[in-house]
Design a protein around this nucleic acid. Structure first.
Lengths: 127, 127
DNA sequence: AGCGCTTGACTACGGCCGTAAACGATGTGA
DNA sequence: TCACATCGTTTACGGCCGTAGTCAAGCGCT
């Protein structure tokens, strides 16, 4: 094993790029630029910079395809999401999920449908 | 109404200061420095800088006490926590809580006790 | 063979962040 | 009154981030 470079933090802009790659890969830089969230209104140059930074952070990998690269994620979305979730829950809710749910509930940010869904989910978990 | 300056983003280091004030306020800068998470190992100067920045961001307010200030939060922890939670859930879970719970469940980050707690909570919510 | 287009690498630059020292005003004890 | 301690304010500085322009190398046409 070993070889397991600690995961460097992915910034918010970089995350937008990762989302594209998680959805479909491998992609060329151009493909990524075309698919990235249009609200960002990035130029191709910006996307290339972000891909470069993600490369050095080892969050994406590249494979040579003729004279260009094909990019693909090197960290699973699963892992990223888990890390970010944990960070937030640790920082704001003492590491426990219940207070988060309670919090959202108190602010009416949970619908009846949500409740039903989560109950079903938990029931399934118990067995 | 009006007068409601948009909440400027509180950084992570600033948040550590806020936690102190949310727990007990008003406090002098010195008090804050003494109570802030010791893992940070900040000098008094650093804490003063952070308080200053929080002041200009209007996240804390100060009241003059002789020749020094007493600081107190100007945004409720509740509000901050809600904002951060929403950001994360929007960014990673399409705005829905269920996937977050499902996610944590799949990673065994929910204990049986958690499940029971949340179920009780949801049951209470339904009525 | 020469030219332009594509593509990654390098450079840039202002902004915020983390961390902190220097400065200046003010109060205080001797 | 004079040195000293105490505060808040200002300035600093390296680092990462967001955004993007420029450069150099190679490919494809003509």
């Amino acid at each position: 094993m070993a070889e397991n470079a600690k995961p460097e933090r992915i910034s918010e802009a970089e995350h937008a790029v990762m989302e594209v790659l998680w959805q479909d890969s491998p992609l060329t830089a151009q493909d990524v630029a075309e698919r990235v969230d249009p609200d960002r209104a990035w130029t191709a140059a910006t996307v290339k910079t972000l891909l470069g930074r993600l490369l050095t952070k080892r969050a994406v990998a590249h494979e040579v395809d003729g004279r260009r690269y094909l990019y693909r994620p090197a960290v699973a979305r699963e892992e990223y999401v888990a890390g970010e979730s944990r960070r937030l829950i640790d920082r704001l809710f003492g590491g426990k999920l219940t207070p988060l749910v309670a919090h959202l509930a108190e602010r009416d940010e949970i619908s009846a449908a949500d409740i039903a869904e989560i109950e079903a989910l938990l029931k399934a978990l118990k067995q």
